[in-house]
Design a protein around this nucleic acid. Structure first.
Lengths: 209, 209
DNA sequence: CCTACCGATCGGTAGG
DNA sequence: CCTACCGATCGGTAGG
């Protein structure tokens, strides 16, 4: 029995994991600029100075590579955006922390092609399959962080219970996505600052509703 | 002198123009779903039941085809979104007409992959060249329609002159783009309705500022 | 991790 | 508009 699929369950060596990480670091950069469909095994291998079959030693197929790339990008997104906001106190403070973390992540160009998951969502909006599902999971986590924080703010009495949580979450998400798109398209920081103003205005309006 | 580039200046026959239109109609549909980079001469030829060299009779290169596709999509966008809003009276009415025309265009799926130019902007935000420039031209026309209408509204006394035109235009654009992205991603009409609510709220806020 | 290969498809061209 | 072709590159595999 042990021999069945022995290759896929065997423990990778330390340098195997290191080279897997090196591959994914590069793949995530390429995918953020050229799109996930823009990833090619050959192109990636050349950038890394290894052969195509060297890549196939780590990922059995293109789709496995794509999934690993999305998971690698997810870990970065959680570290850069979701973790910092969770460190802030629940409610309005966490909502503001989320917006600030997201705008910082966009303007620091953590991914050179802007927010990996907004780009991926646009690329995969007409497709189905495991890659789309993995992208949806991360987008869902981010949206839930916003909606949950709004609900917490109501529970804590920071916002009135007349606030439309889903509507406010939609508008906050719209403004953050537009900051990303605008910063990429124009190359300026203006969209980032406009998003800050809009978030503040949205929260002021929610507080007065 | 007349013989130089005689081929490219000769007058196309009527059926040549008809088949060119048929090619572009199909190409625009494909590009809206798979992206402009997802267009292939071979794939397009097969869908149209013609040979690859048949396509090269109309477009000398892939980039020429891409430019023609963007221009064809631009004509549709002007007809569906920019023309209807221009028919409305200047000011707030034209602004509302623009938003309604855009949301209608998105929810009627004039392009099956959603707004052609928002998708194209995401795809080309890291590139340079004539295709990006053609996309930028259409996005600029649309943004100008919003900003001009806001300024007209101030001139007409419909909005106070304390309104921040650029900031309001940013927020309106954000909400319309989010309606497109959300409708595509979720497949529901909810983002369209949320955008309507947000536009109304934005205008109410601007009127009271 | 490698070399060496596979069939399929890419954009594009020659010649009609 | 066509057939027939070009070199390059795609994802993937055999065998080491």
């Amino acid at each position: 029995m042990r021999l069945i699929q022995a290759g896929s369950v065997r423990k990778p060596r330390a340098d195997g994991l290191r080279s897997r990480k090196a591959i994914l670091d590069t793949a995530v950069l390429v995918a953020s600029v050229d799109g996930i469909a823009g990833l090619t095994i050959g192109g990636l291998a050349e950038r890394l100075g290894m052969s195509k079959s060297g890549l196939y030693a780590h990922f059995g197929s293109k789709e496995e590579l794509e999934l690993a790339v999305v998971e690698h990008a997810a870990a970065i997104y959680r570290t850069e955006v979701l973790a910092p906001s969770l460190a802030a106190p629940a409610g309005v403070a966490r909502l503001v922390a989320h917006a600030e973390a997201f705008l910082s992540y966009v303007s620091r160009r953590v991914f050179p092609g802007g927010c990996f998951f907004l780009a991926a969502a646009a690329e995969f909006d007409a497709r189905t399959g495991p890659v789309r599902d993995a992208i949806a999971e991360v987008l869902g986590e981010s949206d839930r962080r916003v909606a949950d924080s709004l609900r917490d703010a109501v529970t804590l009495g920071e916002l009135p219970d007349t606030v439309d949580v889903a509507q406010t979450a939609f508008e906050l998400g719209a403004v953050l996505a537009a900051a990303n798109a605008g910063a990429l398209w124009t190359g300026s920081r203006e969209p980032i600052e406009r998003a800050r103003v809009a978030v503040e205005r949205l929260l002021t309006h929610a507080a007065a509703s």
